[in-house]
Each structure stands twice: as C-alpha cells, then as structure tokens.
Design a protein around this nucleic acid. Structure first.
Length: 244
DNA sequence: TTGTGTTTTACGACCTCC
DNA sequence: GGAGGTCGTAAAACACAA
C-alpha cells in the first residue's frame, strides 16, 4: 500500500478557517516537529519510545510510524473493538490501553474539527439569509415608493419584518398595483412609463416567484439572481442600517 | 533562554449497550 | 457487571516569538 493511498486528500484534515492561526500553523510546523522527533528517536528503547532522561517514560509520545498506523486504522473504522485493539497494540508494541486512549482522543479531535466546519457552514448560510432579507426589504421599499410615492425608510420599520412578512407585503403590493392598472384601464386611462403600473410591468417577472420577480431595470442590484453571487452588487443595495 | 500558546497523551467520572 | 463510549481536564511535549 503506498502512502498516496493511505493518506489521500479525502481524509487528511484540512484547516477550514484560512484565517485561523492554529490551522495555518498545521502543515509546516507539524513537519518540522516530526523531523525533530525523528532526529531524537534514535535514543529511545527498542520500541522507539522517547525516554525523558532517566529512562522512565512519563508521557510517551507515539512514533511517527505508530501514529500513522493508528491513523490508518482510524480511517477504516472509528470505533475500536477488542480484537482490533489487541491486534494494533501487538503490531505497534503498545499497551492496548494506549491504543484505546489514542482512539478516544482521535475521535475527540475529529469531532471538534467537524463542529468547527459545521459552524462555519451555518454561519455562511446565516449571512446569506441576512443578505437575502435585506434585498427583499429594499425591494419592498422600492415598490412602496413607486406605487405610493411614500419614501419609506428601512430603518424605521422594514428591518423589523421577517423575510416571510416582507414577501407577503410584496405580494400585496403587486396585487394592488394590478388592481390599479385594471381600474385605470377600465376608466380609459393609459399608463405611461412614469406611473406605477408601468413600473410594475418593467419589473415584470414571474408573479408567482417569491424572490426573483424579475430584474428591475431601474435597479439591477435587486435581481434575485444576483443575491448570493455578486458581492459588489450586493453591497450596493444593503441599507446603511445593516452596518450599524 | 524563557515565556507562552498549541498539541498530544493520559486519566477519571459518568453513560450506554449487551 | 464489564467493555467501550463521551466529556472535561491535567500535564508533558513541542514550536516559536521576544
């Protein structure tokens, strides 16, 4: 079995937080640490144990070979049944208890790393949701202004709404605009590009869509398709209260 | 050289499963 | 009840900056 197979990229723990100091330190210093240990390992006992001066091993660090073999075994199966524990201990010249402890600690490390990744994932999703909400609020604000002439201030009330409330409000506005359009048509008033009904037609889109109701030509930043993709556009329409 | 922060090894307490 | 699990923590080993 070659090392490429043993330590494939699918397993090797990759530092999730690029800015994390601990993670950043992992690759090079770890290699350095291993080199230093390897340099010292010649002075150990028959098992390769590192002795601390007097020859009484206190907290004995595993050799690279031992650690690698345990790592391989852990990759195959994270739980350690008795047979495997005894076998590994015999193979590595360790006490079965040490093997058990190593697996316990390895599981703990794996868990904390997994939690770290899960946290980052949830945080990213949360940030995206916040951003999405901001877009919806801005869109509602724009629609209110277009249809009523009232200039709403996001900081006054919009940011207090939930995303679903914003969506409902948006649907109501759309229905109102359609009603206005219908009444105007019935009264023989033809909408031009400057009135509210005209604005709705420009923003067009799919009325059934809760978010991507069409790219508003006057406000391209409000396009739903842009929401999670283009940061520059996003920043253009995030209200100032968002940063407060 | 030393102080400090991180990683690794080890243990005890407690829990679950067979 | 025993074996093996998690969780929290202590302490040794280690890297590195000052």
């Amino acid at each position: 079995m070659d090392n490429q197979q043993l330590f494939g990229s699918s397993y090797v723990d990759t530092p999730f937080f690029a800015a994390n100091g601990t993670a950043q330190r992992e690759s090079k210093p770890k290699a350095r640490r291993r080199r230093r240990r390897a340099a010292r390992c010649g002075g150990g006992d028959g098992n390769g144990w590192e002795m601390d001066g007097g020859g009484d091993p206190k907290k004995r660090r595993l050799t690279d070979e031992q650690a690698e073999m345990l790592e391989l075994s852990f990759r195959e199966e994270r739980k350690l049944e008795t047979g495997r524990k005894v076998y590994l201990a015999a193979e590595l010249g360790l006490d079965p208890k040490q093997v058990a402890v190593w697996f316990q600690n390895r599981r703990a490390r794996h868990k904390s790393k997994t939690l770290e990744q899960e946290f980052a994932r949830l945080k990213h999703a949360h940030d995206a949701a916040i951003l999405h909400k901001c877009h919806l609020e801005n869109e509602v604000s724009l629609l209110i202004h277009t249809h009523t002439g009232v200039h709403t201030n996001s900081s006054s009330f919009l940011h207090k709404l939930t995303a679903s409330q914003v969506l409902r409000l948006k649907e109501k506005l759309r229905a109102t605009a359609e009603e206005v359009q219908r009444l105007r048509s019935a009264a023989g008033i033809h909408a031009n590009g400057g009135d509210s009904a005209g604005a709705v037609s420009v923003c067009g889109g799919n009325p059934g869509s809760s978010f991507s109701t069409g790219t508003c030509q006057q406000h391209p930043g409000f396009s739903g398709a842009d929401v999670l993709g283009r940061d520059d556009d996003l920043m253009m329409c995030v209200p100032e209260w968002f940063f407060a």
